[in-house]
Design a protein around this nucleic acid. Sequence first.
DNA 1: GATGAATGAGATTTCATTCAT
DNA 2: AATGAATGAAATCTCATTCAT
Lengths: 200, 200, 200, 200
Amino acid sequence: MLTARSIAREDKRRRLLEAAVRVFARAGYHGSRVGDIAEEAGVAHGLLYHYFSSKEEVLRTIFRENWGELLERFRAVEGSDEPADEKLEGIAKILLRTWRNDPDLVTVMVREVARSRHLQEEVGAVREAFAIVQRIVEQGQEEGLFRSELDPRLASWLVYGGLEEILTGWVLGQLPDEGEAVARAEQTAIQLALGGLRAD
Amino acid sequence: MLTARSIAREDKRRRLLEAAVRVFARAGYHGSRVGDIAEEAGVAHGLLYHYFSSKEEVLRTIFRENWGELLERFRAVEGSDEPADEKLEGIAKILLRTWRNDPDLVTVMVREVARSRHLQEEVGAVREAFAIVQRIVEQGQEEGLFRSELDPRLASWLVYGGLEEILTGWVLGQLPDEGEAVARAEQTAIQLALGGLRAD
Amino acid sequence: MLTARSIAREDKRRRLLEAAVRVFARAGYHGSRVGDIAEEAGVAHGLLYHYFSSKEEVLRTIFRENWGELLERFRAVEGSDEPADEKLEGIAKILLRTWRNDPDLVTVMVREVARSRHLQEEVGAVREAFAIVQRIVEQGQEEGLFRSELDPRLASWLVYGGLEEILTGWVLGQLPDEGEAVARAEQTAIQLALGGLRAD
Amino acid sequence: MLTARSIAREDKRRRLLEAAVRVFARAGYHGSRVGDIAEEAGVAHGLLYHYFSSKEEVLRTIFRENWGELLERFRAVEGSDEPADEKLEGIAKILLRTWRNDPDLVTVMVREVARSRHLQEEVGAVREAFAIVQRIVEQGQEEGLFRSELDPRLASWLVYGGLEEILTGWVLGQLPDEGEAVARAEQTAIQLALGGLRAD
DNA sequence: GATGAATGAGATTTCATTCAT
DNA sequence: AATGAATGAAATCTCATTCAT
């Protein structure tokens, strides 16, 4: 039941998570104090422990909730009845457009989560994204669209890694990211990946 | 001059650096204490401060010395008189073969350095690697080997990111890495990248 | 007046106190959280503050109410017209039988109250018990039953301490406490004390 | 080897332990902060963790080192070739004289250790003291000095408890403790215990 | 150079208590 | 009365760094 109180509760929790994203993006996980997050959220730091068991649990939650959402969208693409190349294009667009949508979140995901030791247990959830790309590659090979001699698993890592590196370039401020540039990055990524995968 | 003393000195320094690589690989930068490094090196922890100004300086040194070596080899490839596709192949092989050569070092580079906040100042050195790949791509375009409509800078990030992701897969224990598998990864990476870049 | 409301009120208060005894016995005063007590009582922890001003006040209340009851029974023994040795026997039985009656309460009294700093102000109430024993000893000396050269105050502490140590042995699980054993402890305590006090 | 450094080291450790005894005696274990102990010892609080793994470990060490010493003396009495009554007298004197010798230490032992949950694991060491008293009682029974119908285990708890209660009275400031009073307490305790144990 | 005792800033976490609902 | 969200003081413990020996 959505009482006024349960709504308020959900609200504070959400505010803490969003504050944590901003703070982690700005100063990094290790450079952020629990008190910084609370201050950013406008609450006492003790409250954070009402909603999360630890600072690490906050990071884990950020990952879980947002990665889950991303996976949903990946799954939707996979489940569509498009040909494999269009699906891959869809994946690339979803991933790259997260940047404009929420740069802080992408920053945290790229810098604090992707290769972190804090979320080793969540590795399964990350693997799922690779598995989707891999299945799309396999589908493309079956359709005769993609070269069948390529190992689809390795290919999925290579393609995904390329996309993630673009995000990293934006996060590090090393690649231009205005609207135009984002579109060009999308195009380039898609052309390169599909060109590499495509059967002649 | 290499006196016995200066050699001994160099020796301890090196032992500390190598110990740090092992310890950082095992427990991460933040999970490692200065005392752990010293213990691994078999010296008292105070000694570390004779050779390095701080724990961070140790990480920075690891990066600098090893990245410099890698860059040397990249430059050698770039400077050779091979066609662009063979140069790119060379780069890929150098990068991927570092894994078998020194997994701990790769682990530290991938997990603690690549996207870290600790080495923002060293970003220039990383950029240099991208620049080399980018120039090779440009060379390929001039030679008519590679498609000229691709943005060479973005392409270099995409290609490099794919390679780094393979290393990450190995670091995380998610991709197989016995000799055979490494060779296949090389082949797949090269085929995919060149396939994507190649002009028809 | 005992309205339905005042009864309900009394009921919650009592439930909290009984819950506190169980929780303190299990985890100790410092190891117990106010929330644990409330949970054990099946109420929200905020409610505890309607009935008690603090966590310490809960402990104090446990002591006061139960020690008062014990004192009543001691006073009844003292006020009887039995000879001193039988009175002392009565005291010992009352004290030792509290264990079978309410082990949790005894545990709290022995571990959290008897030597605690939280109840320094209640020291007078404890002293009263010693005074009763002391007066019984003095009575015995006057009656010629007990040796008159013994300091009755010290004797009362020694006797009382012996009894409390038996309780402690039970609390710590170091002395057997099935029915038979309790009876034997009573007998031994009485024989030893009276043997020591008795004039030849 | 006793280098100047190892002596200094032992010195600081000892100073910390002695400071802890004073601070615990004054404010209780829970009322004392690690910083208070360090301040009393005249060192930085971090140093405490050089020598002890935790605040609790400090208390444990206080107990262990001092209780061990006491046990030694108990064992010496037990091992002597005196009759049982004189041995018991010896035990009583040792125990009661600890008060004048180191009131703070006795305070800590009585209030923070004896019935505490912090040192449950050390219970074996405490049991050893009871076992010694018990064996003396048994010896007395065999020698025909003590009444054989008394359970020697219970008797040892009763006797020991009486002595501990005298210490408690001193700790709580409820019993007089000048030289004269201590001597009288000794006499009374011994007369009462031996009177109770003695065969007619 | 080498050691490791000593320092102390700092960070997370706990939890009694308050108070708006 | 009853709830439990919110507060924030407080305390333990960690560990990079310094420095006397």
